[in-house]
Amino acid sequence: MNKMNAIAWLLPILFMIHDFEEIIFVKVWRQKYQYCLDASAMKKKPFSHFKSTDEFSIGVEIIFVILSLITLISIIFNDYHVWYGFIFTITAHFITAHFKGVLEFKHYVPGFVTSILFLPLNAYIIYIVTAMLRFNAVDILISCVLGAAVGFFIYTFLHSMEKNFANKLIEYSINKIEK
């Protein structure tokens, strides 16, 4: 395995470690900070669109599979443009969602700790990968815009499916096993 292939697998790995923090803490965080969330004047309150950890976990699983497939396809075809766009998008997510969320909410927001830890690592990955792949400004711009657009589409689609996820989970729990 060459160096770029090994680096490429960091995308789904870092994503999952980051999202494990969110999955583990979002329920208890909501309980602890519900009063602050209710009193907050924020336009978009952190994790307000997820009704349960179960629903959130389904979305995380789908994104993990997508990122793993993007990584695998990038390695197979030795073309890292889409992969590069997604590592950029996740790095930007650390800033736009978690750093901004903590600054506006003035309290811990799930995902913030791994965002602090991974932001410099991701920036370094982007730096060395840019040099390794010899990406020029056009490659970088197209990859980042494409990654952000596709990432936004995936996020919006999963958000619209949230109620469907909840209904499927409820349906599964209600259907009894016949003997």
Score class of each variant (00 low, 15 high):
M1T: 11
K3M: 10
L10I: 08
L14R: 01
M16S: 05
I17H: 02
F20S: 09
I23D: 01
F25Q: 10
V28F: 13
V28M: 13
R30N: 14
Y33F: 11
D38W: 09
S48H: 13
H49I: 14
K51S: 13
D54S: 13
E55S: 12
F56K: 02
F56Y: 12
F56I: 08
G59K: 02
G59V: 01
I62S: 05
F64W: 10
L67V: 07
S68M: 11
L69M: 14
I70P: 03
S74H: 03
S74T: 02
F77S: 11
N78C: 08
Y80T: 06
Y84G: 00
I87A: 00
T89A: 15
I90S: 06
T91F: 05
A92C: 08
A92Q: 07
H93S: 10
T96A: 09
F105H: 02
K106L: 09
L119R: 06
L119V: 15
P120M: 05
L121C: 09
A123M: 15
I125A: 03
I126D: 00
I128H: 01
I128A: 03
T130V: 06
L133S: 04
F135T: 05
I142Y: 04
S143H: 07
S143W: 01
L146H: 06
G147W: 01
A149S: 11
A149V: 15
F152Q: 10
L158R: 05
H159V: 10
H159E: 14
S160E: 13
M161A: 12
N167D: 15
K168M: 14
I170L: 15
S173G: 13
S173N: 15
I174S: 13
K176P: 07
K176M: 13
K179W: 13
